[in-house]
Amino acid sequence: MNLLPHERYCDEIVLRTEALRAAVRGFDLDAVVPTCPEWTLRDLAVHVGGVHRWVGEIVRTRAVDEVPDERVPQFTPEGEDPAVLDAWLAEGAASTAEALREAGPGAKVWSWSWDRSAGFWARRMAIETVVHQADAALTAKVSYAMAPDLAADTIDEWLEIVAFAQASGDDPGAAELRGAGRSLHLHATDAPGAEWLIEFGEDGFTWRRAHERATVALRGPLTDLMLVFNRRLAADSDRVEVLGDAALLDFWLERSSFG
């Protein structure tokens, strides 16, 4: 799988955070986020900013073990002032991107994943912010768009994470993504080559970029496919089309919610 350049991921952490801040700014911070109903918009912003700062501390210190939240400087913003929250988000994204650029993609650091490198965290934080930018946009009812290569990489990375969760045996939902003879096809209608085939087997699932018939197909604009795949857009939305066994798509979405 071709990754985007490390510098691009670092840039997108800042750019996606700017877009998230623009969606949040001036909106009711106590509004419930429909795609994460356990959170308010303030909770969402604090989560994003806290994760950025946590990763920044891991990378800056070249941590070899997980860093507790209490060891992260300014892990949460001070007070309730929306302007303070906005500045805190901006500073955290910029600081983390700077730490990642300075480290370079090959720097060895702790991660929860198969890849213990700063490069993993640059990609993870860019895509984390891509998805939570969507949460903010949906809450504030503002438009949301994503560059095709970044939207496609968001799907690639999520497949890698779900496969890791299944292989590790630590996630009961991912463990159920098996059963020979079934397959799921994602087909972007506006981005040539943006297609994925997920094939279920007795031992789990595999995936590859391919255009093939499947048990169920999800078709639509690439950004909308990405949003459905990340459970930010309902599969029965009129922005996408489901062909075939819709229950299999629901089966995947219900069990691919690692973390």
Rank of each mutant, 00 (worst) to 15 (best):
R182F: 02
A126H: 06
Y144M: 03
G179C: 02
L100N: 02
G106A: 13
A94K: 03
S183H: 03
R124Q: 04
A163R: 11
A118N: 07
S95F: 05
L138C: 05
A122H: 03
K108E: 15
P192D: 08
E176S: 12
P192F: 07
A191Y: 05
E176L: 14
S95H: 09
A180E: 12
V131G: 03
A103Y: 03
H185C: 03
D149E: 15
A126Q: 08
Q166Y: 11
R123E: 07
K108Q: 15
W158C: 10
P192E: 02
K141W: 08
E157H: 14
Y144E: 01
Y144P: 03
R101T: 08
A136T: 01
A93V: 07
D170A: 15
V162P: 06
A165P: 03
G179A: 00
R124I: 11
T154W: 02
A126P: 04
P192Q: 02
S113F: 08
S113V: 07
D115C: 12
A99M: 01
P172A: 09
H187F: 12
D170C: 12
A167R: 14
I155S: 01
G119K: 01
E157C: 07
L138K: 07
D153V: 00
G106H: 13
G193P: 00
A145F: 06
S111Q: 05
D153M: 02
A122S: 14
D170E: 15
A94M: 09
A94C: 08
D115G: 07
P105N: 10
F120M: 11
W114S: 14
Q166G: 09
R123K: 08
G104P: 00
V142M: 03
R124W: 12
D135G: 02
A165D: 05
E160F: 11
Y144T: 04
A126D: 04
A191T: 14
A107R: 00
T154M: 06
I127C: 02
E160T: 12
V109S: 00
V131E: 08
T189M: 05
H132G: 05
D156N: 14
A99W: 08
G181N: 09
K108Y: 13
A99F: 02
E157K: 10
T154G: 04
G106Q: 13
G169F: 12
D171T: 12
A165K: 04
L138Q: 10
A188H: 05
D171P: 00
W110M: 06
G193F: 00
S95Y: 01
S113M: 01
W112I: 09
Y144H: 12
G104Q: 05
A99E: 12
W158I: 10
E102G: 01
V142P: 04
A174H: 07
T154A: 14
R116H: 15
W158T: 11
T154N: 13
H187Y: 11
S183L: 02
K108A: 15
D171C: 11
D115S: 09
M146C: 13
A122C: 07
A167V: 13
W110Q: 08
G179H: 06
T154H: 01
L177I: 14
T96M: 04
L186D: 00
D135Q: 04
V109P: 02
T129Q: 00
A126Y: 04
L184T: 04
V142R: 11
A103C: 11
A163V: 04
E160P: 09
S95K: 09
R178V: 11
A145D: 13
A151G: 10
T154F: 07
L184M: 07
L100I: 07
V131D: 06
A145R: 13
R123Y: 03
